[in-house]
Design a protein around this nucleic acid. Structure first.
Length: 321
DNA sequence: CGCACTCGCTGATACCGTGC
DNA sequence: GCACGGTATCAGCGAGTGCG
C-alpha cells in the first residue's frame, strides 16, 4: 500500500518541489495512457497552455484591454482539462454551442475583471475571504456560458492567471481537503463541485501558499494545484517513487485502483462512494459566501438554451440497473 | 408567482468481468 | 494471457418541485 501523501498543512518546501518536479513524468504517463492516434497529446496541449499566461500578457499590453482569449483558445483549454482529468464528452459540444461572439465577449469580460494578487507571507485569512469574493464574481460571469461550470471556469482562469487562480481539479481538491478529513476520504472523496467546496479548496490553496511563502518558498496557486494533481495521479496510476525518481508502473489492470486507497474495490466501480450515496450534501449548497453563479443554473442559462446542441438532453430510460 | 434547489439525463471513456 | 463486451463514471443541463 502506498504511503499516504504529505498533507498540505505539513508538506515541506523540499517535498513540494520534489513532487512538482515529477509533473512532467506523470503528465507523460497520463498522456500515453489516454493517447489516441491522430490526436494532439496531453503533453502538447499542456505545453501550449503553459505558455498561455505569457502570450496573453503580450496581447494585454498591445491592446490595453486586458488579457484576451479567442474562442478556439477557450475550447483548447476545455480540451486540456478534459484530457487531464476525466473525459466528459458532453462538455466540449456544449461549450462549442455558445455563439463565438458571446463566448469571447463573456470570457474577455471575465478576464478584465480584477483578481486577487499572488499570496505572500504577510497575508491573513481575511485576505482570503476578499480574494475569494473577487474570484467568485469572475466565476459568476463565466458560468453563464453553456458548458462552463465552476470547474471549467477555473480551468480557464488558471490558464491565464496561474499565479493566483488554482484550477478546481479533482486530484488537487481531494489532496487539499485531506487536511480536514485526514486521508480517510482520500482519493475517493466525493466532490460536489459547488461554491462551498471551491471556497474551501481555494482557501486551502492560499493557506498552503502562504505557509510556504513564510518559510521562504514563494509558490503560485498553479504550482500548488499541480502538486495535488501529481499526487492524485500517482495514486491512481499506482506509481511509486522510492525517493530516487524511478517510476514504477503496474500493469493497467492490476494497478488501476490499487495504491489509491490501496484497498479493496471490487465491483463497486470507481471512486464514488466515499460518502454515503444518499448523504450527498445538497449538491448546490449556497454557502454564506457569494454563490458562484449560484451554481444552480437557473434562468440565465436556460434562456439561452433553445438552440441547444442536443435535443436529447431530455430524459430517457437509461436507468442504471 | 418567482426563485432556489433537486434530480434524472447525456455519452465517450475507463475499467472490470468473462470467454476464448 | 489477451480480447471483447458491458456498464459505471461525472460535469453540466434543464424540467420539475417546493418553499417563501
Amino acid at each position: 500500500m502506498a504511503a499516504p501523501p504529505p498533507l498540505p498543512s505539513m508538506i515541506s518546501q523540499e517535498e513540494f518541489q520534489a513532487i512538482l518536479s515529477r509533473y512532467p513524468m506523470v503528465l507523460r504517463a497520463v498522456s500515453e495512457k489516454k493517447q489516441k492516434p491522430n490526436d494532439r497529446t496531453l503533453e502538447e496541449i499542456d505545453d501550449w497552455r503553459n505558455g498561455l499566461s505569457d502570450s496573453t500578457k503580450q496581447t494585454e499590453s498591445a491592446d490595453d484591454g486586458g488579457r484576451r482569449l479567442d474562442a478556439s483558445q477557450v475550447k483548447d483549454i476545455v480540451l486540456w482539462k478534459l484530457k487531464r482529468g476525466k473525459f466528459r464528452p458532453t462538455i466540449l459540444p456544449l461549450v462549442s454551442s455558445n455563439p463565438v461572439g458571446e463566448l469571447e465577449s463573456t470570457v474577455n469580460k471575465a478576464l478584465k475583471m480584477s483578481l486577487p494578487s499572488q499570496v505572500t507571507s504577510d497575508g491573513s485569512e481575511d485576505d482570503d475571504d476578499d480574494a475569494l469574493a473577487q474570484v467568485s464574481l469572475v466565476l459568476n460571469v463565466l458560468v453563464k456560458l453553456r458548458g462552463i461550470g465552476p470547474a471549467t471556469a477555473t480551468a480557464i482562469l488558471s490558464s491565464v492567471f496561474p499565479e493566483t487562480i488554482p484550477m478546481f481539479s479533482d486530484e488537487a481538491f481531494r489532496w487539499i481537503m485531506m487536511d480536514q478529513s485526514g486521508t480517510s476520504g482520500g482519493w475517493n472523496r466525493k466532490i460536489a463541485y459547488n461554491a462551498k467546496e471551491y471556497s474551501e479548496f481555494y482557501k486551502g490553496i492560499r493557506r498552503l501558499c502562504r505557509r510556504l511563502a513564510s518559510e521562504g518558498e514563494v509558490v503560485d496557486a498553479g504550482s500548488a494545484e499541480k502538486v495535488g494533481w501529481v499526487l492524485g495521479q500517482e495514486a491512481a496510476l499506482g506509481i511509486t517513487h522510492p525517493a530516487k525518481g524511478t517510476l514504477t508502473k503496474p500493469s493497467r489492470r492490476a494497478g488501476a485502483k490499487e495504491g489509491s486507497e490501496g484497498s479493496v474495490r471490487k465491483k463497486g466501480r470507481k471512486q464514488d462512494d466515499a460518502l454515503s450515496p444518499n448523504s450527498e450534501p445538497s449538491k448546490f449548497v449556497t454557502s454564506g459566501l457569494e454563490t458562484i453563479g449560484s451554481l444552480s443554473k437557473t434562468s440565465a442559462k436556460r434562456k439561452a438554451t433553445s438552440a441547444g446542441i442536443s435535443p436529447s438532453l431530455r430524459r430517457s430510460k437509461r436507468n442504471k440497473e
